[in-house]
Amino acid sequence: MLELPLVKGDPFHHVMEAILDLSDVAHVVCTTRGLNLLAVDTKHLAIVSLLFPAEDFKGYTCDEYISIGIPIRDLVNAIRCGDDKDTITLKVGEENFGTITLSFVSPEKNTVDYEFRLVDAKLERFRLPDRHFLRSKYQGSVKMPSVEFRRICKCLSNFGDEYGVISVTDEDLTYFAKGTDGDVYVEYKQQEEDTTIFKIDVREPVRLAFNPKYLNTFAKVFTLSGQVKLFLSKTHPLMVECKIGQKGRIRCFVAPKVEP
């Protein structure tokens, strides 16, 4: 049995809204310890992962291992129909396995229930990078304000949706996007005085090409947190992470474009 309390605009809803146009199914695994959501975009170029420990989720109830495929559009449409003040609970029960119920309760105790089928998609689990992997395979990381990151992603995506480059040295971070009519460069210098807001940490310079469209989509989600951290590798996907709550986190991975 699973009961997942949701609020319009919370991280779970936010992630679902963000990936609505990228992916059809969110794979959700719930245990007594918490929730893990994984969604791969339909072109198989990006992954978003949301980790929510039970202690960060007020009212979270799960007494067994539950692995389900949630149709993102159905869920988002239902949440959009609800009122901001409604208490929303996502339920998967033993008696109605194969379906999901989304219950909305207004402050006046009026209720609306949505019931829809779970997606029978084969759950694909990936071994996503742990700290050891990040330390050994990623040559650099950059911490920056999420609002600033979103602004850059929007700017890059507006110029060119298909081809962007991130480069980092121990002195600066640069973004580049190639558009049809022009290019855009954005450069950030490492500030020596204040490294709490913007901090570059590199073992060696890294340059990687990527598709700006995906970063722009995920950047919206990262504004749920004040800061984002980018992990850059010469051989592995670009990873962007933000912390949610006490121990939760959202991560996205964008496949690098291979340059000659």
Partner: peptide, 14 residues
Amino acid sequence: LRSQPTIKSFFKRV
């Protein structure tokens, strides 16, 4: 010039 490996090719399946 801009070939694109899939994201899945970078991760092992569990």
